[in-house]
Amino acid sequence: MRKLLAAATAGLTVLTVAAPQPAAARGRPDTYVVSHDPGVLPEGIAVAPDGTMYVTSVATGAVYRGHVRQRTLRPFLPGGADGRRSAAGVHLDRRGRLFVAGWDTGTLFVHAPDGTLLARRTAPGAALNDLVVTADAVHVTDSATGTIWRAGLHGEEVGELVPWLTPAGFPAAPGFLNGIVATADGRIALVADQGTGVPGTERLWRVDLRTGTVGEVAVAGGQLGADGLLLTGDRLHGVVNFPDGHGGWSFAVNLAILDADRRTARVVRQSRPAGLAQSPTTIARDGGRLLWVNSQLNAPAPRPPFTVTEVPGLR
Rank of each mutant, 00 (worst) to 15 (best):
A87R: 05
T16P: 06
L73M: 15
G66A: 06
D37K: 13
G44F: 06
L5D: 12
A6V: 08
L4K: 09
H91F: 03
A59K: 15
Y64W: 14
R26L: 15
W103D: 14
T72S: 10
G61F: 10
A46M: 13
R69H: 11
R28Y: 03
A62N: 03
A62P: 05
V55P: 02
T52N: 03
V100F: 12
T52A: 14
P49R: 12
K3V: 11
Q21H: 08
T13N: 12
L77N: 01
F76E: 01
L15Y: 05
A87W: 07
P38R: 13
L73H: 07
R26C: 09
P49D: 13
G27S: 10
Y64E: 01
G83V: 11
H36G: 12
V58S: 11
A23D: 15
G89N: 04
P22G: 07
A87G: 09
V17D: 08
V14C: 13
T72E: 15
G51R: 04
T72R: 13
V100T: 12
Y64N: 02
A81Y: 00
G51L: 02
E43M: 04
T9L: 13
G44Y: 07
P42W: 04
V63D: 05
A88M: 07
S86Y: 10
T16Y: 00
S57T: 10
H67N: 13
M53E: 02
D30A: 14
R69Y: 05
D30F: 05
V34E: 01
S35G: 11
V100G: 06
Q70H: 15
V90M: 01
D82K: 02
A10S: 10
V68H: 00
G96Q: 11
P78Q: 12
Y64V: 04
L77H: 02
T31E: 15
A8M: 11
H91A: 15
A6I: 08
A8N: 15
K3L: 12
Y32I: 00
W103Y: 14
T56Y: 06
A25R: 05
L73G: 00
P20L: 09
G61Y: 10
